[in-house]
Design a binder for these strands. Structure first.
Lengths: 138, 138
DNA sequence: CTAGGTGCAAATAGTTTGCAACTAC
DNA sequence: GTAGTTGCAAACTATTTGCACCTAG
């Protein structure tokens, strides 16, 4: 499992620098679980007020490139970022109430397998969002 | 099946007006199959040059409300609209080459069934996007 | 010291809104 | 005639870029 601990090494291996901002953004992604750049910015600011939103965007792009975080598009608007270290899971979004819940990867495995076999398509389960209506709202 | 033919009636039933713009946008959605507001605007403009992008947005919202079209978020950026009359289908987007292909609803039926049973969640299959890597790029 | 990183301001893309002019009915 | 509709300009939100200054190594 890739964790925050490895950030310094991963950066060093690429000749990149470890900065407070990068640590804070990665920590915030872990803390919040699923968060938009805006939300991460707010979280980081509570610790380091001067951090610019631009840096959040640049850092998220970097962390994603380094394989430490990914993002998904849940509904409209901003993407949400989460750690890749977490169990791969899909999201289920209710269009009525906006509730987001997680879908266990086991449920998706057969579909993923089918697509791989039939089409040679490798589904990224962590980047999957199912829209619909939840039990409460249905 | 709801088709373009019913637009006048559906509008009338709500006390709304049938305009050239509305017909053109709906036709464009049918013609293009999956298109962003931008692309639909371009298509409509080929027939009626004066139509404003604002009208495209407003009309898509209306048509969606009327149940004639839906939209999905394929990858980043703009949503893509398509007719609801078409067979419900999901989309498969390759993150390398950007290719979009359709996934037959049969493949998704078991998953949808499972979620309905276990969680009472009604998945909107037409609004589903699977991201990953296609055979060519893998 | 110096390449990489950050903050700030400005640019850009996508979408929404206010309002006066227009038109379907 | 009149309520619904449109076009235009301006506002907004989310994101990206250019650039001078700063700092980790």
């Amino acid at each position: 499992m890739v964790s925050e601990t490895s950030l310094p090494e991963i950066l060093r291996a690429r000749g990149l620098r470890l900065t407070a901002q990068r640590q804070l953004v990665l920590e915030a992604v872990h803390e919040l679980g699923h968060a938009t750049p805006e939300q991460l910015h707010a979280a980081v600011r509570e610790v380091a007020a001067g951090v610019n939103i631009t840096t959040i965007y640049r850092t998220l792009e970097l962390l994603e490139d380094l394989g430490l975080v990914t993002h998904t598009h849940l509904s409209h608007g901003s993407p949400t970022y989460h750690p890749v270290s977490e169990d791969q899971h899909a999201h289920m979004v209710c269009r009525q109430c906006g509730a987001v819940s997680e879908v266990e990867p086991e449920l998706l495995a057969p579909l993923a397998e089918e697509l791989r076999r039939q089409r040679g398509f490798e589904v990224d389960i962590g980047h999957l969002a199912l829209f619909g209506t939840c039990g409460e709202c249905g």
